[in-house]
Amino acid sequence: MLTNIFAAGAPAGAPNFGFWEALQQGGAIAWTVLAILVIMSVGSFYILFTKLFEQQKIINQAKRVRATFWQSNSLREGAAKLDKNSAYRQIVDDGLAAQEQHAKLTDPVEAHDWLHGSLARSEAAINSKLGAGLAFLATVGATSPFVGLFGTVVGIYRALVKIGAAGQAAIGDVAGPVGEALIMTAIGLVVAVPAVLAYNWLQRRNKSIAEDLSAFSNDVLGFLASNGAVRPTLASKSTVAAKPAATAAKPVTGTTTAGQTGGVPTRP
């Protein structure tokens, strides 16, 4: 389709110039550049879709954690409700393993520091796995325009050499080969733009997932450090709806001190 767009403006009586003719004139270099750009494009879309699948899987796991995990009596009971390969279960398992390991340490290390370091390593491992492949997208976005430009330069060079060998040439003899050589630059841009957009989008989603993992890891740390006394409070809809009613039931008599935000009520 792209080649048809480039060839759409050619008049009916023009010489037979086209994308495939340009590749054949460019020789092995033009075909190599095209192959590299195709590999970059296919690799970019493959990473985009696989990373979206991985991210959505962890987002769904976070919803399950908020719904059922903290209603359990213990971390082991809550972990049993999660998928075996869940990222959140990995954090819980690593935290429980660190708690058992701390009892075996001979050096005096505070339990909080040991648990915090273990949970931080678990978080970093998950985030590193999520970020795998994004460097390829960044590389494609940064280099594919220059790869296409290299193909263009080679194509123009070959066209000018042929024109110089032929002696005097009309504008039609020059415009065709040079214009076809510029197609490689356009292909490089077509490959680069989706890669850059995919990289920025995936990075933003990874940042949101990392924030959720960090919050969950902090909750697990508080649970372990307090022997289960500290756990996140899950506000229900009935509780949230009852708060405004309770506030409205307490009338404030008297006047407030002028000039104070939320001033102290005074008796008349």
Score class of each variant (00 low, 15 high):
residue 201 W to N: 11
residue 266 T to N: 15
residue 46 Y to K: 00
residue 157 Y to F: 07
residue 227 N to C: 10
residue 62 A to Q: 15
residue 185 T to Y: 11
residue 90 Q to Y: 00
residue 95 G to R: 02
residue 107 D to R: 05
residue 37 L to S: 05
residue 6 F to K: 03
residue 33 V to W: 09
residue 127 N to S: 13
residue 19 F to L: 11
residue 222 G to N: 12
residue 119 L to D: 04
residue 216 F to P: 03
residue 107 D to Y: 06
residue 131 G to Y: 12
residue 1 M to S: 12
residue 132 A to K: 15
residue 257 T to E: 15
residue 248 A to V: 03
residue 51 K to H: 03
residue 159 A to P: 13
residue 95 G to T: 04
residue 14 A to E: 04
residue 260 Q to V: 15
residue 98 A to C: 10
residue 32 T to H: 05
residue 65 V to W: 04
residue 112 H to W: 01
residue 252 V to E: 13
residue 94 D to G: 01
residue 20 W to D: 15
residue 155 G to N: 11
residue 77 E to S: 10
residue 112 H to M: 09
residue 23 L to K: 10
residue 253 T to L: 12
residue 180 E to P: 01
residue 168 Q to W: 13
residue 159 A to Y: 07
residue 154 V to A: 08
residue 84 K to R: 14
residue 228 G to M: 06
residue 226 S to H: 11
residue 268 P to G: 10
residue 268 P to M: 01
residue 196 V to E: 11
residue 55 Q to H: 05
residue 184 M to H: 10
residue 63 K to N: 12
residue 40 M to Q: 06
residue 185 T to V: 08
residue 155 G to W: 07
residue 259 G to F: 03
residue 175 A to Q: 12
residue 214 S to W: 04
residue 12 A to R: 06
residue 211 E to T: 14
residue 79 A to T: 06
residue 76 R to I: 11
residue 179 G to S: 06
residue 262 G to W: 07
residue 14 A to M: 05
residue 66 R to H: 14
residue 150 F to K: 02
residue 254 G to W: 13
residue 15 P to D: 01
residue 207 K to H: 02
residue 137 L to Q: 04
residue 234 L to M: 08
residue 143 T to S: 06
residue 48 L to N: 12
residue 156 I to G: 01
residue 231 R to N: 04
residue 26 G to Y: 12
residue 230 V to F: 13
residue 251 P to Q: 10
residue 5 I to W: 15
residue 264 V to D: 00
residue 210 A to H: 12
residue 145 P to H: 00
residue 27 G to M: 08
residue 42 V to Y: 04
residue 213 L to C: 09
residue 122 S to N: 00
residue 78 G to H: 12
residue 58 I to G: 05
residue 152 T to H: 09
residue 199 Y to W: 03
